[in-house]
C-alpha cells in the first residue's frame, strides 16, 4: 500500500468510506441530541395527531411553553448532550486517523496493512488533536481576558457604540485565530499521514506549508466552510415551514437537511484531500 499520487487524493476515490462517515455522523448526531429529544418527546405539549408540529407554529406559543416551562429539565438534558458531544469529538478524533490514511493511499486497502498504517499514526494524530484542543481553549481564555480587561478602556476611548464595535472586532480576531489554528492543525495532521512524521515535526511542516500560500489555503478552506454553512442555513430556514405540515412534509425537510449534511461532509473531506495533496510533496 503506497502513498497515492497527488492527483488521486480525491474524495471520489473512497465512496464507501464517505458512506460510513455519513452514517456514523447521522447516528452520532441522533445519539448526542437524544437527551434533548427524549425530554421534548415526554412533554404533553407534543401529544396528539399533529405531534410536535405545533412547536413550529407562527408566534411560538408551544415552543415558548416548552422551552420556558420545561427549562430546568431541558437544561439538564443539554448538559448530558454536551457531555455526549465531548465523547463524540474524541471518537471523531480517532476516526480522523483511518479517514486520512484511507484518502492518502491508492488502490484497494488490505485490512491488515490498513490497520497497521493507522496504528502507526494514531499516537501522533491524537497528540495533535489534544494539542489543537488545548490551543483552542487557550485562544478562548486569552480572548476572554482581553475582552474583560479592555472593556473599560475601549469605552473610554471610543464611547458606547465604538467600544461595542471594537469588542466585535476583537471577537472576529479571536475567531480568525481559531480558524488559522484549524488550518494549521489540518495541515499538520495530513503531514503525519503523508510524510510519516511525529507531531512536532508535523507541526513545523504544517506551519511552513501554511506560510507558503496562506491566502490560497484560507480561501480553499473558508470557501468550503461558507458553502457548507450556506447550505445548512438555507435548508434549516427554507424547510422550517415544512415542519408545520404532516408526515410527508417533515420527511421532505429531513431529506433536505440530510442533503445539506452530506454536502458539508463532502466539502470537509475535499478540504482534507487538499491538505493531503499539499503535504505529500516537498
Amino acid at each position: 500500500m503506497k502513498l497515492a499520487a497527488r492527483a488521486q487524493m480525491q474524495i471520489a476515490s473512497r465512496p464507501g468510506w464517505i458512506g460510513i462517515l455519513f452514517l456514523t455522523k447521522l447516528a452520532l448526531g441522533w445519539l448526542i441530541a437524544s437527551p434533548l429529544l427524549l425530554r421534548v418527546g415526554q412533554s404533553p405539549l407534543v401529544q396528539g395527531p399533529r405531534g410536535d408540529a405545533a412547536l413550529f407554529n407562527p408566534g411560538g406559543l408551544m415552543l415558548v411553553e416548552l422551552v420556558w416551562g420545561d427549562r430546568s429539565a431541558l437544561l439538564g438534558a443539554a448538559k448530558t448532550t454536551a457531555l455526549l458531544f465531548g465523547a463524540a469529538w474524541l471518537m471523531l478524533a480517532l476516526m480522523a486517523v483511518p479517514t486520512l490514511v484511507a484518502f492518502s493511499r491508492r488502490g484497494a486497502l488490505s485490512s491488515l496493512r490498513f490497520v497497521h498504517q493507522c496504528a502507526l499514526r494514531v499516537g501522533p494524530l491524537l497528540a495533535l488533536s489534544v494539542a489543537s484542543l488545548g490551543a483552542a481553549l487557550s485562544i478562548g481564555l486569552l480572548y476572554r481576558f482581553f475582552q474583560r480587561g479592555l472593556a473599560g478602556t475601549l469605552y473610554t476611548l471610543f464611547g458606547e457604540r465604538g467600544s461595542d464595535l471594537a469588542q466585535i472586532l476583537l471577537l472576529l480576531f479571536g475567531l480568525l485565530c481559531l480558524a488559522g489554528l484549524g488550518l494549521w492543525m489540518d495541515l499538520s495532521r495530513a503531514t503525519v499521514v503523508t510524510r510519516e512524521l511525529g507531531p512536532r515535526a508535523a507541526l513545523r511542516v504544517g506551519w511552513a506549508r501554511l506560510g507558503r500560500r496562506p491566502l490560497g489555503l484560507a480561501l480553499a478552506a473558508g470557501g468550503r466552510l461558507a458553502i457548507a454553512l450556506g447550505a445548512l442555513a438555507a435548508v434549516q430556514i427554507g424547510s422550517f415551514h415544512l415542519l408545520r405540515g404532516g408526515t410527508g412534509s417533515w420527511l421532505l425537510a429531513f431529506g433536505l437537511n440530510q442533503l445539506a449534511a452530506l454536502i458539508a461532509l463532502l466539502l470537509r473531506l475535499d478540504w482534507l484531500c487538499i491538505t493531503l495533496r499539499e503535504t505529500s510533496t516537498n
Binding site: M95, A96, L232, Q236, F254
Partner: peptide
C-alpha cells in the same frame, strides 16, 4: 390527552436538532 402515547422521539424536533449536531461534528471532525 391521547389514548396512544406520542412517539418516544418527536420527529420534527429530532431532524432539526440532529442535523445541526451533524454539522457541528463535520466542522470539528473529519
Amino acid at each position: 390527552r391521547a389514548v396512544r402515547p406520542a412517539p418516544l422521539v418527536p420527529p420534527r424536533a429530532s431532524q432539526t436538532i440532529t442535523s445541526l449536531v451533524q454539522f457541528l461534528l463535520t466542522l470539528l471532525g473529519p
